[in-house]
Amino acid sequence: MIAKRTGRLVVLAALPAAMFLTVGLSAPALAADGNAYQIDLEQLNNSGSRGTAMLSIKGNQLTVQIESEGMVPGQPSAQHLHGSTNGHDFHCPDASDDTNADGVLSNTEATVDYGNINISLTTSGDTLATSGLAVDRMPVADKQGKLSYKRTLTVSKDVVDHIKDLHIVQHGIDRNKNDKYDFDGAGASELDPKLPQEATAPTNCGMVMGASVGSIPVGGIETGGGTPQSSAMPAALAGSAAAVSVAVVGAVVVVRRRRALAAVRTESLGSAA
């Protein structure tokens, strides 16, 4: 019985590492001063796109690793870290944010929820917000619509301190299902009329999970325009890694109590004999 209980504890203790083994991403090896955060990317615009991302921080070095699928085959995907490093609260949008009811959640409509670009996740060159539409430096999905990305960036202390308040958004949809971005699918982009709306509309979005929860918003929820609006703060999601740790500690306490009770019973039986 003791061997079986020990085995259960080993499985529970292994859960935090197993959390990172989704969609092809492995748990990063970090030094004592490092932190890692998981992001699950969920579809927007009924794109069918999903994925997993890891944000790993060591000092002022941020490593971003993304594995996603359901992207438009052979097409570049603009991708960014959106949000605030000033303590304001943002979150991923949903279909209800399609305010003009045209059936497409545009980037402008979604920005109210997920905030402005903080870092452009380009494959080379700068990562400034102004490179948000640098599609020639964005990763390209393969023929199966799968996209892999990894890059280490030097970031500011504000980004390090507020990394849990930033979200990953990937862009690019195929509304008319012809495996390319074109103007027939959803017209021209509101960001650049030379680009199809399909190229700039968000395809998925994910918020940081794991060891930390979002910071308390300053002045309520901030819109993408930058002016905080008075609003109740949404309930913070407890980190799943913390929850697993609590479960492990709880399991250890239960086992120890059971062993202590068993010892007392054995001693009592011996005295009675």
Rank of each mutant, 00 (worst) to 15 (best):
residue 127 T to V: 11
residue 45 N to H: 04
residue 146 K to T: 10
residue 108 T to K: 14
residue 42 E to V: 09
residue 56 S to Q: 06
residue 111 T to A: 07
residue 111 T to F: 03
residue 114 Y to W: 14
residue 150 K to G: 05
residue 78 A to I: 04
residue 153 L to C: 07
residue 122 T to Q: 03
residue 64 V to R: 11
residue 116 N to K: 13
residue 177 K to A: 12
residue 158 D to T: 06
residue 69 E to W: 06
residue 152 T to W: 08
residue 91 H to R: 15
residue 111 T to M: 07
residue 147 L to C: 05
residue 148 S to K: 15
residue 56 S to G: 08
residue 65 Q to V: 09
residue 52 T to K: 15
residue 95 A to M: 13
residue 139 P to D: 00
residue 34 G to M: 03
residue 164 K to Q: 14
residue 150 K to I: 11
residue 126 D to S: 13
residue 127 T to C: 07
residue 48 G to W: 00
residue 108 T to S: 09
residue 55 L to F: 02
residue 176 N to L: 11
residue 164 K to P: 04
residue 63 T to E: 07
residue 66 I to W: 00
residue 52 T to M: 09
residue 147 L to Q: 04
residue 93 P to V: 00
residue 160 V to K: 11
residue 57 I to S: 00
residue 80 H to S: 14
residue 100 N to E: 02
residue 133 L to M: 10
residue 90 F to N: 10
residue 124 S to A: 13
residue 108 T to Y: 06
residue 152 T to V: 08
residue 111 T to S: 06
residue 76 P to F: 00
residue 124 S to G: 03
residue 167 H to N: 15
residue 52 T to G: 06
residue 91 H to L: 12
residue 161 D to T: 10
residue 170 Q to V: 12
residue 160 V to P: 08
residue 77 S to I: 03
residue 46 N to Y: 09
residue 70 G to T: 07
residue 60 N to I: 05
residue 152 T to G: 06
residue 128 L to M: 13
residue 66 I to Y: 01
residue 97 D to N: 14
residue 88 H to V: 07
residue 148 S to Q: 15
residue 175 R to L: 15
residue 141 A to Q: 00
residue 168 I to N: 06
residue 113 D to H: 11
residue 39 I to P: 14
residue 115 G to V: 05
residue 64 V to M: 09
residue 127 T to R: 10
residue 126 D to Q: 09
residue 87 G to I: 08
residue 163 I to S: 05
residue 100 N to A: 03
residue 171 H to A: 12
residue 57 I to V: 15
residue 33 D to K: 10
residue 96 S to A: 14
residue 139 P to A: 03
residue 42 E to I: 10
residue 148 S to Y: 04
residue 131 S to P: 12
residue 165 D to Q: 05
residue 111 T to R: 15
residue 151 R to F: 05
residue 114 Y to Q: 09
residue 37 Y to H: 14
residue 129 A to R: 10
residue 76 P to E: 02
residue 74 G to H: 03
residue 71 M to A: 09
residue 81 L to D: 00
residue 86 N to R: 13
residue 146 K to D: 05
residue 154 T to D: 08
residue 39 I to C: 02
residue 53 A to Y: 05
residue 136 D to C: 04
residue 157 K to I: 04
residue 32 A to I: 11
residue 70 G to I: 09
residue 91 H to F: 14
residue 178 N to Y: 03
residue 104 V to N: 04
residue 165 D to F: 03
residue 50 R to E: 07
residue 92 C to W: 01
residue 133 L to T: 02
residue 127 T to M: 10
residue 36 A to Y: 05
residue 53 A to W: 07
residue 48 G to A: 02
residue 81 L to Q: 00
residue 50 R to M: 05
residue 119 I to F: 01
residue 128 L to N: 12
residue 156 S to G: 09
residue 97 D to L: 14
residue 76 P to K: 01
residue 73 P to C: 02
residue 60 N to K: 13
residue 89 D to R: 15
residue 132 G to F: 01
residue 59 G to Y: 03
residue 174 D to S: 03
residue 164 K to T: 13
residue 119 I to N: 00
residue 162 H to M: 10
residue 174 D to M: 06
residue 49 S to N: 08
residue 67 E to Y: 14
